[in-house]
Amino acid sequence: MEWLTDQKIPTGRWAKIFVDWLTNSGGWFFDGLSAFLSAVIDGLLFILGWPHPLVIIALVTALSWYFRRSIGLAIFTCLGLLLIVNQGYWEETTETLALVLAATAVSMAVGLPLGIAAARRPWFNEFLRPILDLMQTIPTFVYLIPALILFGLGMVPGLIATVIFAIPAPIRLTRLGIISTPPSLTEAAVAFGATPAQVLRKVELPYATPQIMAGLTQTIMLSLSMVVIAALVGADGLGKPVVRALNTVNIAQGFEAGLCIVILAIVLDRLFRTSDEGERT
């Protein structure tokens, strides 16, 4: 076996060369992307942080009642968010929410068209599948290193890492919804003279809506699961007190911050989940 280890393939060195090339030749692009994503996050932070917390709580509670028509969910949303304020983690919660919303928006904006393309072109799906597997299985810290080099410390590398981890969900579920459309529906639309774009817009996408919404909720949950990882690269939010609690073995602080993450996850999941998600009527 020594001859095999003596002839080591320099994959790590090749990766370093590639990242160095990106840094040297594409620095202007990554600087611009970083500035744009920072502006998006700052805008969300301003929107969420400018009103009084009670105004945001009342608005989210009203939205939960409007979308779900459940008095139980509305009460849970109100009491849960009030508990977050009581525990002193409201600012961190808004920072986490801004990161999650930005990551979800980017993931859905990129994942939806890629999922449609994968459904329409089998060869593209075969090309995309191992890449998506790699994005979900490779340890997060592996691509955090080049993210730090390209974007520096702060919210942006945390956002990039979150998008890489979460984007396979909307791609795969969008494709699943499109290919699950009964052929009889598409054949009827074509028989009535519908173009491929009309078939997509008026038949396939409406039929795939429950799967697409499932992809949305999965993206939100996956983004929330990354808040602690994002805190390790300088992203603000509920991940920071969790990391501090871990470093100082502070059980109380870790439980409080973890409880806030759980409450936020439940509220977002119930708010964006459709009543017939995953079902066909």
Rank of each mutant, 00 (worst) to 15 (best):
L59S: 08
I116E: 02
A74H: 03
I71A: 12
R68Q: 11
I116W: 06
D42V: 09
L97G: 07
S64T: 15
V100L: 10
L44H: 11
V60A: 12
W90M: 00
E95N: 13
F67W: 15
V40I: 12
L73T: 01
E92V: 00
A39V: 06
S34D: 13
I116D: 04
C78Q: 07
V106W: 09
A103D: 00
H52I: 08
A118H: 07
W65L: 14
G88I: 13
N86F: 10
S70L: 08
I71Y: 10
I41A: 00
A98L: 06
D31W: 14
V100A: 01
V110C: 09
F46Y: 15
V60P: 08
S64L: 11
L73I: 15
F29A: 11
R69W: 03
I41V: 15
L73Q: 10
G88V: 03
R68M: 02
L79D: 01
L63R: 14
L99C: 12
I71G: 08
L79A: 14
A119C: 02
L73A: 02
G43K: 09
L44Y: 12
L79N: 00
L97R: 08
I57E: 03
S38H: 07
G80P: 04
S64V: 13
A98Y: 10
A117S: 11
L63W: 15
L48R: 13
T96R: 02
D31T: 11
A105P: 10
G111F: 03
M108C: 11
G88A: 07
F76W: 02
L48H: 07
F36Q: 08
E91P: 00
L101Q: 04
L82F: 09
F76A: 03
L82M: 09
W65N: 00
V100R: 12
V55T: 15
L81H: 06
A117G: 05
L82C: 08
L83A: 10
P113S: 09
T94A: 03
L79E: 00
L81C: 01
P113N: 04
G80E: 02
S64P: 02
P113F: 01
P113V: 06
E91M: 02
H52V: 04
T94S: 05
T61H: 11
L48A: 07
P51F: 09
G111Y: 03
V85A: 07
L99S: 06
L44P: 07
A39E: 00
L82G: 00
V40G: 04
I71M: 10
L59Q: 01
E95F: 08
I57A: 05
T61N: 06
V60I: 15
I116Q: 01
G43E: 09
A105Q: 05
G88P: 04
G49A: 08
L82T: 01
L97W: 12
A103E: 09
G111E: 02
P51V: 10
C78G: 05
V100M: 14
L54G: 03
Y89C: 01
F29I: 09
L45R: 14
F67P: 04
A39H: 13
G80A: 01
S107L: 13
L81G: 05
R69Q: 13
G111H: 10
G72Q: 00
P113H: 04
L83M: 12
L63Q: 06
A58V: 07
